[in-house]
Amino acid sequence: MPSPALVADGLVKVFPGPQPVRAVDGVSFSALPGEVFGLLGPNGAGKTTTLRMLVTLLTPDAGRASVAGHDVVSQPDAVRASVGYLATTTGVYGRLTAFEMIETFARIQGVDTPRKRAEELIERFDLSDYRDQRCARLSTGNKQKVSIARAIVHDPPVLVLDEPTTGLDVLVAQTFLGFVEEMREAGKCIIYSTHIMSEVERLCDRIAIIHGGQVLATGTLDELRQQTGEHYLESAFIRLVENSGASS
């Protein structure tokens, strides 16, 4: 069995303030290369905070995590070089063209032939017609394509996708899901955060259901069905959340 490409072990994050918020409370899971690992949970469950710790945007208050064998706290630069992150928003520079955006990130990520790589990705994501258009003028779908191209420009072994289909129309979302499947085939480890059940059912090899900053259950779709006695993922999810509310 291959060693995990990503490991989260007891991650804790508390946001200080007059009433401190324990956004993530002991989250643990691991994901293998060539696996799509789903983080499923409602808004405010702690998914994004967990992902932000994994990509070094936030420092965990407790616990540890590693990406491609690099510790997120002690080796943040190595972690960033190994991960492609797609945030909930597209995060493109409006004043750069689609090509410039991808080429620039190829350059700063240390890709040997940045222009060639950018051309490849423009072709791959069917952006040739919008190559020289400024990102501010692109449609949401095309912005998301640019953003994905930017995230994978350095060919990272781990992809962290945070609610990537939010705001996309059905057709673009389908294309995107196809891309995720392709990445899995290429052996990438993909952490896929969402609250859309159908996407999880289609894509994820294993799932962690997260609520109130805690992982309620982890396993394959079948394992979750068996654990909850529910056939549909949505019902299983609701059962787990209700049980956690009853137990707390």
């Binding site: 945030a87 928003t89 597209t90």
Partner: peptide, 13 residues
């Protein structure tokens, strides 16, 4: 705007 996260996750120190 939402570009800071994109930037901070790049491997540039």
């Amino acid at each position: 705007r939402d570009t800071l996260e994109t930037l901070l996750v790049s491997s540039v120190p």
